[in-house]
């Protein structure tokens, strides 16, 4: 079943000449983890904002979880989607951690008794309950993003959209956030769309869509996409570390496997190679 369907989408920003999307189509299956990559300005943020009804298309049809997106249904659609944005500071609405998680629940007019339960559960999920009374200044970027995720989890959405949510984090914070996403996707079968410049993040997805000026130029499994080095550089992405290492090894005259290897896969393969010699 398709969780999200974008059909014949046409969109441009008001007062803008060029169209960001001209007859754009995309389907996302229920429970799928889709990574969207592409250079800056290729329209990734615009696309997810259109899906969430934060922008209105000129024409075309967007269906989310069976609901056709119209001005009347936009709040229903939004309640199915949880979004986490790039800048951890600029999406922290509450005065402290628990207030921030409660913000979305207050908007949805959830009764207070239930709010208390949901806030606590969500914060425990992301390992931030002991920081419940902390103000945002006392938190790291990664912690703030985990709080943002808790805000999303508390609202029990069907879809989680991350718009470069890990790009401003240190490796540790990034890992913590990705781990939570991984769990939401694999254990609770939430549909995940993650926009990212991080190859390691994208390679965790089941499917990668490469966007270029509002067009899907590639749509495949991560292993397929990341093994074409030249293509990656063309769309403005660094090839993953394991691919660069492979290339160096080939230069040294060492035979390497053809298929794409994740960082962990690379380590395993290196150990095997090492123990054989």
């Amino acid at each position: 079943m398709d969780m999200i369907e974008v059909k014949n989408l046409i969109f441009k920003y008001p007062q803008q000449e060029v169209y960001n999307f001209n007859n754009f189509n995309l389907k996302v299956k229920k429970g799928e983890w889709l990574a969207i990559i592409g250079h800056n300005g290729s329209g990734k943020s615009t696309l997810v904002r259109l899906i969430d009804g934060l922008l209105a298309p000129e024409s075309g049809e967007i269906t989310v979880s069976g609901i056709k997106l119209t001005p009347e249904t936009v709040w229903d659609v939004r309640s199915k989607i949880g979004m986490v944005f790039q800048n951890p500071d600029n999406q922290f609405v509450g005065a402290n951690v628990e207030d921030d998680v409660a913000f979305g629940l207050e908007n949805a007019a959830i009764p207070r008794e239930e709010m208390l339960i949901r806030v606590k559960q969500a914060l425990e999920r992301v390992g931030m309950w002991k920081f419940a009374d902390h103000e945002p200044v006392r938190l790291s970027g990664g912690q703030k993003q985990r709080v943002a995720l808790a805000g999303v989890i508390a609202l029990k959405p069907e879809i989680v959209i991350l718009d470069e949510a890990t790009s401003m984090l240190d490796p540790e914070g990034r890992l913590a956030v990705l781990e939570i996403i991984h769990e939401l996707n694999r254990v609770e079968h939430l549909t995940v769309i993650s926009i990212t410049h991080d190859i390691d993040e994208a390679s965790k997805a089941q499917r990668v869509v490469v966007l270029d000026d509002g067009k899907v130029v590639q749509d495949d499994i991560p292993a397929e996409i990341f093994s074409h080095r030249a293509g990656l550089i063309k769309i403005g992405l660094e090839p993953p570390f394991s691919e660069k290492l492979k290339e160096e090894l080939i230069k040294q005259g060492i035979k390497v496997p053809d298929e794409y290897l994740t960082k962990e896969g690379m380590v395993d393969w290196l150990w095997q190679l090492f123990s054989k010699q």
Partner: peptide
């Protein structure tokens, strides 16, 4: 950014 985030969270 904040306005977008608030709207996305149902405000």
């Amino acid at each position: 950014d904040l306005a977008t985030a608030m709207e996305a969270r149902g405000y």
